[in-house]
């Protein structure tokens, strides 16, 4: 066979470094701003000081403010996110599939859900505090309420968009009732549902911080509030970074889980590029 050189087009937007461009610029700006002391340290601490605070926070047994306490706080926060997200996913998937496949039920439930959704999440905070007090339950309530909506809406939409012909094909091949749901409707709608789950998980982290700031003993949000009151801006930034990383990791894990459950998504993503 003739061996020709593969034509390598310069594909714009395919450079693997692109996603890191903006963070790198931001870091540079941060470095320069503090180096030339354009802002006082209580507004913007030095990147090196912040890094030192992070190391102290993470290193087990470290002394000094917040020394070595990262893991216990992270553990509590992660637990809350998982519980809140788990509740939201359970309710969102169940109701979503029911509404997506049952037009009558959808007409009863969806308008009401959309009505509630129009209240911004923070608007629930005062009521949540009245109902559940500050702390644990209130945080769980906020997380699960906020992450319920994208999961529910995406599930309803994806379940309703499974084409009638695909369902007929499944029935024709002998899939009835539960088998039809698990072997046809579920996988056919899975891609859209996964999008909803990812959105929901992202929102869970956002509302975690909101809930924890109202007062819990352990949790990244609690550290943030505490550090802010003590004027320890470096620690506030450290917490933001830790939350970003943790959220990114849980998102990747969720994505991985989805891909294991539905390998075709991977294939498609690979095939289209």
């Amino acid at each position: 066979m003739l061996k020709s050189k593969p034509i390598r087009q310069r594909e714009p937007g395919k450079n693997p470094g692109l996603p890191y461009l903006l963070p790198a610029l931001l870091l540079l700006a941060w470095f320069l701003t503090t180096h030339f002391q354009l802002l006082p340290p209580y507004l913007l601490p030095k990147p090196t000081d912040t890094l030192r605070a992070l190391v102290r926070f993470a290193a087990p047994g470290a002394t000094g403010p917040y020394g070595g306490t990262l893991w216990v706080h992270l553990w509590h926060s992660l637990g809350r996110v998982c519980r809140g997200f788990g509740l939201a996913a359970g309710a969102g998937l169940l109701l979503g599939y029911l509404c997506g496949r049952r037009q009558g039920l959808n007409r009863i439930i969806s308008p009401f859900v959309h009505l509630i959704r129009s209240v911004p999440g923070i608007g629930w905070l005062p009521l949540a505090i009245v109902w559940f007090g500050v702390g644990e339950k209130n945080t769980l309530f906020l997380i699960s309420l906020a992450s319920f909506f994208p999961i529910f809406t995406n599930t309803v939409h994806s379940a309703a968009s499974v084409s009638q012909q695909i369902i007929l094909a499944g029935q024709m091949l002998g899939a009835k009732k539960t088998a039809l749901f698990t072997s046809v409707i579920l996988p056919a709608s899975f891609a859209g549902v996964a999008v909803g789950l990812r959105l929901g998980l992202g929102i869970a982290w956002a509302y975690l911080v909101l809930g924890e700031m109202t007062g819990v003993n352990y949790g990244l949000g609690a550290v943030m509030t505490d550090a802010r009151m003590l004027g320890n801006t470096a620690m506030v930034i450290v917490c933001i970074v830790v939350i970003a990383i943790a959220a990114k990791i849980t998102d990747s894990l969720l994505l991985l889980g989805c891909r294991l459950a539905a390998p075709i998504e991977q294939e498609k993503a690979g095939g289209n590029s």
Binding site: A169, G174, P187
Partner: peptide
């Protein structure tokens, strides 16, 4: 619906989350 009928639809209705092999095996599995 009686199982002795097979329908080849107007538009392709293969299950896109299954391989060719698993698509063909779908009915037998059921």
């Amino acid at each position: 619906l009686h199982p002795q009928t097979g329908v080849l639809f107007q538009s392709p209705t293969l299950f896109n989350w299954l391989t060719v092999e698993d698509n063909v095996a779908f009915g037998l599995k059921r």
